[in-house]
Nucleic acid binder design. Structure first.
Lengths: 160, 160
DNA sequence: TTTACTGCAAATATTTTGCAATATC
DNA sequence: GATATTGCAAAATATTTGCAGTAAA
């Protein structure tokens, strides 16, 4: 995913952007960014809070909300939709992917899909200028399908 | 949208389903369903609460959450994602449409799209069985685009 | 030195839960 | 009459806000 070298480049870029916006480069913001880069999928503020704790760098939730807002302002993060009661964030690079959400285990798998991207890039919508899009596909993942099948088989044999 | 005659058919069907599930047909549930049918787009429990109030049929939020759960259980509603802090629900019929969300005014417009449906119906995903999908397109609606343009023009002339 | 940022604590918003009274079946 | 449902009140969860102390520039 994002290796150490990439990270320092990204952090440098982040510092520049902060400076350009008259915002301050604080240890909290840098560390939070690093942790955000580690997430391979959607995450919530609460998850970020735990990750920071586990890395011996506790920050307040206010700071997390603040930094997440900054990252959204500069277009590095987006609010995404999960149907859960807490807001999920996602790195912009990941949003070009298709979200496969299993209705059974709730896990979301990201898949890259150039065919879909090509389809969407060619698409226009009436009276609307597209900046990006999100396709979430709901269904059942194979793991759960297998599990459900086994469960049913077991129930049958239990009846006997 | 859903006219009065359609509604009574739907309510009848709802009554049957409730009976079949050993659930009770209460005035609250029927009225809530009627209001849900009136929503042309996404709605939150809070909006539903207000609508019920305005129609002189106040119900508790508990009842709303309960009924919404029932409607989801029977597959008539789905949780949808808006990136706001409250959960939005949507009628299943509407989910086959594309959501155009304006990042400026936040309004979501639904558009029917048979070409996209055809594309998706033909699509398969590895290790995943699709049951439905949601495409949300983010961007700027023409109303806002116009407003932004005017604002910029105004700012320029103010500078002079 | 200036002032943006952090973190606390409190306010607000949203959702869930327990339970007594009630209404459906 | 049995019990599912309602609505209240309280708990749990999530997000926002105000402000004093702190630290970046």
């Amino acid at each position: 995913m994002t290796d150490q070298q990439d990270k320092s480049v990204i952090i440098e870029r982040f510092s520049d952007i902060l400076k350009g916006k008259g915002k301050r480069k604080t240890p909290e913001r840098i560390k939070i960014l690093e942790k955000v880069l580690d997430f391979k999928k959607l995450f919530t503020v609460e998850q970020l809070y735990q990750v920071m704790l586990n890395d011996d760098f506790p920050v307040s939730r206010s700071t997390l909300y603040n930094t997440v807002d900054v990252l959204m302002e500069i277009g590095w993060l987006r609010k995404m939709n999960t149907g859960e009661s807490s807001i999920a964030y996602e790195r912009v690079e990941q949003t070009a992917q298709i979200h496969l959400k299993c209705e059974h285990c709730g896990k979301i798998k990201l898949v890259k899909d150039t065919s879909f991207m090509a389809y969407m890039n060619a698409r226009k919508f009436m009276a609307f200028t597209t900046s990006y899009y999100n396709l979430t596909v709901y269904g059942v993942c194979n793991d759960c399908a297998r599990r459900i099948k086994q469960l049913k088989r077991k129930q049958k044999s239990d009846k006997k």
